[in-house]
Computed example of a mutant assay.
Amino acid sequence: MTPPQPRTRTGTFDELLASGASVPTEGWDFSWFEGRATEARPSWGYATTVAGRLGAVDGPVLDVQTGGGEVLAFALGRASRRPPMVAATEGWPPNVRRAAHTLRPYGAAVVAAAEDAPLPFADGSLSLVTSRHPVRPLWDEIARVLRPGGAYLAQHVGPASAFELVEYFLGPLPEGSRTARDPGRERRDAEAAGLEVVELRAERLRMEFFDIAAVVHFLRKVIWMVPGFTVEAYRPRLRELHERIEAEGPFVAHSSRHLVEARRPGGPGRPGA
């Protein structure tokens, strides 16, 4: 893909900090970053892939950790037809409200549920479970709620994602941190829960941050990257990074993503049908 060209940003260091610190962080709408940061997208086109699957599924669908519901809304809006029932779970209260508003026009119900809580659905009740960037996939719960022949289709954050940026602020991380979210480990965990992994694809993708405001907003929005991040706590490092970007150009990092599809054995037809 050809990323959009960065716009020239003006303003002092303090003005850029204030800009990045003032933007609301709820939901998964990243349009504010246009002209300030870019991230290459995986070749499989997750939201479009989900839209295709939604058009083919005949049973109830659940989107787990939906954020503000933006990705699910995109997929529902482009599906050739809508499933008979669509629901979503979300744990952060501001996102629950946002998702309810975003998904209401599509007839999707939003259920408040903590990310580590059991899924509030009956055993074998769902034909398709989707999720974009869950904090941690609950494989036993996913296997429990899927019907025989039902599928889990998701895009996960992979190992060492954006670690160039994370380690800029936190310093070198233990080796174990680099292997967390390993696709091979997730395959084994899914299989241990009784699921059959039918597709697993991984890619590493270029990210560029064109100004310090983009860095600030990103770390406020994706809170697990630098836990406890605040402008005040990291002001000296932010200034150093600002000066580096001003002198050398965009700060480059690399995100890690993988597409996983896992099926509960049994039942007719293709996964998710």
Rank of each mutant, 00 (worst) to 15 (best):
W32H: 12
G35M: 09
G35F: 03
E39P: 01
A40F: 07
S43T: 14
W44T: 06
W44N: 09
Y46E: 03
T48G: 13
G52M: 06
L54C: 08
V57R: 06
G59T: 11
V61S: 00
V61Q: 05
V61L: 07
V64R: 02
Q65P: 01
G67M: 01
G69H: 02
E70W: 00
V71Q: 03
A73L: 00
F74Y: 15
F74T: 11
L76Q: 04
G77A: 12
R78G: 08
A79Q: 10
A79T: 09
S80R: 14
R81Q: 14
R82P: 04
P83D: 03
P84H: 05
M85C: 12
A87C: 13
A87G: 08
G91C: 08
P93G: 10
P93W: 10
P93K: 02
N95K: 07
V96I: 12
R98Q: 15
R98L: 15
A99G: 10
A99H: 02
H101Q: 14
T102Q: 08
T102H: 00
T102A: 13
L103W: 04
L103S: 11
R104W: 01
Y106A: 14
G107W: 00
G107C: 06
A109V: 15
A109I: 14
V111P: 03
A112V: 06
A112R: 12
A113C: 15
A113F: 00
A114Q: 13
A114K: 11
E115M: 00
A117T: 07
A117F: 10
L119G: 02
L119W: 05
A122N: 01
D123E: 15
S125D: 13
S125K: 13
L126G: 03
S127L: 06
V129R: 00
T130W: 01
R132T: 01
H133L: 15
R136I: 05
P137L: 13
L138S: 12
I142L: 15
I142D: 05
R144W: 12
V145D: 03
L146E: 04
L146F: 03
P148F: 11
P148E: 08
G149W: 04
G150P: 10
A151P: 05
Y152Q: 04
L153K: 01
V157R: 15
G158C: 08
